[in-house]
Amino acid sequence: MNEGKKKENDSLNSLKNVQSSEFHHLLTNFLHQYYEKQSNFVQKINAITLQRIDDINMEKMKQKSFARFLNVVPTMSTFHIFLNGFQLTDLSYKNTSNYLELSPGNHQIDIYDSNNLSQPLQTESLLLEKNRYYTIALTFQLNQLSILQIVDDPYLPMNETKIRFIHLANTAPQLDLAVKQGEGDVVFSNVSYKETSDYLSLTPMSVNLELRLSGTKSILYPLYKSTFQKNKIYDIISIGLMNEDTAFEVLMLK
């Protein structure tokens, strides 16, 4: 009798163990699915939040102006650049700043010589439009400092490149930027002092270029083996003086 009850109890315990195991398995599956759904939900919320933050940041960027400063005045002095009374940067010859984020609108720019901060060499008003990029070049003409505002275009199709030519060599006449004689044509022609060509979109490449006197084969500056990489924009800039102590040369900004 006792043996029968024992078998019955063993059977009941075995059944309970099986039921407990199945319940535990079902509960584990349920919790796993629950947490997986919760995790996916949180990831979607985070993705939406990040997208909204990116959209907000992009919209804020569109409300700003951006300017970099370039010094092409052939002098040993360093120039200190102030905007609305606050110093932005200082630049020596042939140097450029990074793009600086600025508020759009009218700004007063003052240029000081590092050897004399009591009186600006030049003061001008700049109008910066929102969502635009500028190169502000410090140049000179008739031995007087001047400020040239150039509009940049930083947008570029994926895996392409583009170039333009900016003539900032004070004493040079009109210039041509051309592919080496026998290898190609003139790329930009008849560019005068302080003029900027349009952008030219290119497939990334290496090419032999020459800077020439406009309309001639006279080479002023060879740019052989110039390499233009994908997803980069290049400004080819003539600077310096012809037939004087400060050499005529070319800067390439990207």
Rank of each mutant, 00 (worst) to 15 (best):
S21E: 13
T28C: 13
H80R: 11
E195G: 03
S197Y: 06
L251G: 08
P74K: 02
I166L: 10
N46Q: 13
S238R: 01
D245W: 02
V191W: 00
F82Q: 06
Y112W: 09
G105W: 09
Q141D: 13
H24R: 13
N143V: 00
D55H: 08
H80A: 10
K225D: 13
R164D: 00
H167D: 01
T89H: 12
V186Q: 02
L70Q: 05
E244P: 00
P120N: 06
M205Y: 05
D152R: 03
I219N: 01
Y193T: 00
P120G: 05
Y193S: 00
A172P: 02
D245T: 06
K194V: 08
L148Q: 07
E195L: 08
K230T: 02
V42W: 14
A247I: 09
K6E: 15
F86K: 11
V186N: 04
K6S: 10
S206Q: 11
H167N: 01
Y93R: 03
Y93T: 03
T89V: 15
Q108P: 03
E160A: 06
Q229F: 14
I53W: 12
A47S: 14
K230H: 03
V250R: 01
I136G: 07
S65Y: 07
Q19W: 12
K194R: 08
L102M: 14
V179I: 15
K94Y: 08
M205Q: 14
I150M: 12
D153G: 02
F188Q: 06
K62W: 07
S192E: 03
Y155M: 09
S189T: 11
E210P: 01
D54C: 06
K194E: 13
L127V: 13
K232V: 00
E129F: 10
Y134G: 07
K16P: 00
D10I: 12
